[in-house]
Computed example of a mutant assay.
Amino acid sequence: MTYTRDWDTAQVGFGPEVRELIATALTPREPSLVVRAGTYVVDPPFFGNGDIGRLAVCGAVNDLAATGADPRHLALGIVLEAGLPLDLVHRLTASVREAAAEAGVAVTAVDTQVVRAGEADRVYVTATAFGERAGPALGPDRVRPGDRVLVTGPLGDHAAHLVSLRDGLGYEYHVPSDCAPLNDLLREVRADLHHALPAAGGGLAETLRLTAAARGLTLRVDESAPPVRPGTRVALATRGLAPLDAACAGSLCLFVPPDRTGTVLTALRAHPRGRHAAVVGEVTADRRGDVEYVTPDGARTRTPSAGPLPERLL
């Protein structure tokens, strides 16, 4: 999972499929060892209720946990821009420690480099999570027609927080980022799952698109079903963004067999980070390999009705 801005992707020419291919090709083949790495860039790197350090820890932990493994250790690479105030450096390190403790993982290696002023957006972080396989691996190959699509929490809070903070809208005081480690939540339900993915960079819409393409099946999604906070919806609307396209840092997309959906929903809603879990769609037997969105008036489209894909708001 890589957090990036539009200009990063355009400049390098790598889309999410290529990044996933590279990550898969370089992942160690030791059966009991699972490794996931991500490079994290966020604007601004220090925001209302978090920062890039917390985002990196939670992102790496959630990405690894979504494979069905238990995260154990983290290795961090931190690039600092010369002149960064020491109080922000202390805030960053404290945030990393707190997020790691919350996730129950140990930070066992850290490398820090300093670049000249103007050569970085204050700070970049690369996080690598190491874990142990705890059971059958989750993945798109296990997704079946009839599976229900669930989200574990409200969509778009992270993107709405950053948009409001950058544009001075004031909503950031009412809509905090949802950045949180979700490995404990996943542990409660993973035995009943076929597949799990964080609804990160491109939001739920990109997560669904990647899964549909990888499995070659069509997903049918009710646009009105995902939970969205009112303040989040308003903040995103100021930029013409739909919650389905907005980045989340504390919400997962799950694929669950129909006969286990009730059990999974009950378990999720009993957890503090899953109280707003909801069923948003299902996997069909149609082999177009895309996503079909059903609007409140019953119309069906191939893209979210809000319009074209937006920039990545991270």
Rank of each mutant, 00 (worst) to 15 (best):
A191L: 12
A100N: 03
T261D: 12
F14G: 03
A200L: 09
L193Q: 07
N183H: 13
R122S: 11
V279Y: 06
S177L: 11
G202A: 07
T232K: 00
A246Y: 07
R54E: 09
G170M: 08
E282W: 14
A205L: 09
T238I: 04
A270R: 05
D43E: 10
A60M: 03
A246C: 13
N49A: 04
T24R: 05
L313S: 06
L210R: 15
N62W: 00
G201D: 07
T232V: 12
F14K: 02
E98A: 02
A134P: 01
A159D: 06
P44W: 02
A196H: 10
E223V: 07
G104M: 09
G156E: 10
L74N: 00
E188P: 05
V110G: 10
A237S: 15
G289I: 09
T93C: 00
P296Q: 04
H195Q: 09
V105G: 02
D245S: 15
A120S: 14
P310Q: 10
L26E: 02
A285V: 11
E188A: 15
G139D: 14
S32P: 00
G104R: 03
V279F: 03
D157K: 06
L197Q: 13
T238F: 14
V221F: 08
S164Q: 10
H194L: 09
A103Q: 03
T27H: 12
G202V: 10
S95T: 05
G156R: 04
D167P: 01
L76Q: 00
L92H: 05
A103F: 03
P310F: 12
A65P: 06
A285D: 15
T67F: 01
L197G: 02
V279I: 11
L182G: 11
T9Q: 15
A270Q: 13
A137P: 01
P28V: 04
P243W: 14
R209Y: 01
V105S: 01
L244N: 09
L86E: 07
L26V: 14
R190I: 14
S251N: 10
R312G: 03
F46P: 01
G53K: 00
D290Q: 02
R72W: 03
G146V: 13
T24I: 04
V34Q: 05
A10L: 14
E292L: 15
P226S: 15
A82Y: 01
A117D: 01
R97M: 01
T266R: 12
G168H: 08
A101V: 05
G131D: 04
V12C: 04
T301R: 15
D297G: 00
V114S: 00
T93R: 00
A306Q: 08
D222W: 10
R215A: 07
T295I: 05
P176H: 14
G15T: 08
V189G: 07
L150Q: 07
P16D: 10
R287A: 07
D141W: 13
P181R: 05
V61N: 02
D121S: 13
Y171C: 06
D8T: 08
V125A: 01
H73L: 06
T266C: 01
T295C: 09
S95N: 04
G131N: 02
A127Y: 03
L64Y: 03
G139H: 03
R116F: 02
S224Y: 06
L88E: 14
